[in-house]
Amino acid sequence: MAGFDPQFVMAAFDPQFLWNGLVVGSIIAVAALGLTLIFGILNFINIAYGDYMAVGAYFAFAANTQYDLPIVVAALIGMVVMAVGALVVDKLVFERFRSRSAIVLLVVSIGVAFVLRNLIRIVWGTGSRRFSGPIEAAPQFFGIRVLPDQVAIVVISVAILGGTYLLLRRTRIGIAMRAASDDTDLARIRGIDTERLVTYVWLVGGAIAGIAGILLGLDAQIRPNMGFTALIPIFAAVILGGIGDPIGAVAGGYAIGITQELSVVVIPTEYKPAIGLLLLIIGLLSKPEGIFGEATR
């Protein structure tokens, strides 16, 4: 019976969970930021977003281990590749479907996801990989085990979030992005060139997806389906935060990460992934007016 299985024993509260939650939340927050920017302007659910993350991680991995570049340089390469990559995918595929319904675009993105994920498998194989770096000791602070990689994840994500915030607040293109996210047609009336905006959104969103994938790979392992399996909590953060709302998505990301890690206090560890699933379901079902009204489409 379940009760006798040691795996199913629940844990008592431990500040370690909170730190782990912050780390996981940082990754989800960054990923959700990129997704909500793209979602807010392109108005379709891009299933391939998780695979964008994986592509970013694998290019960084290649630069890091196959060309022996320092991890920071490798990460920058991964970001740039995915920024340009997202734009290329748009030009090759999504641009041709611009006039079609959100549902058709969703199905198209499934096709894109198939292609990207399996290209990764062909190029890098199916096994899991890790970035190369010294295995460092994990110092303890107040009884919490803190890995250097985890500190890097939290710090880098704050930097990315801050940088994006400034981009959206202080630059013309960022302000235009926010306006367009609120209402695509309105932005057109005000004289914003929406196609140029779309270009910037893919560049920015793609770069953020790339770094999110790298952070995810830093925290765990680099696998071909790493992004796809992470997709549901990321979507949950976007939905809970309100589609197209960057601050909401980031807040949702941290909330989901921390809830997920703290959940082991009340539910068996094996069911941790259920938190993201349940939050997405609850988020979608409980906000029918705000999110699903015609006005947001």
Binding site: F44, I45, A102, I103, L106, I232, F235, I239, P273, A274, L277, L278, L280, I281, L284, L285, P288, I291, F292, R297
Partner: peptide, 18 residues
């Protein structure tokens, strides 16, 4: 089933994973 199309997709996908 009252959800708009693509959101129904996400909810059903989540249920399936659950």
């Amino acid at each position: 089933v009252r959800l708009e199309g693509d959101y129904l997709a996400m909810v059903t996908l989540s249920f399936a994973e659950l």
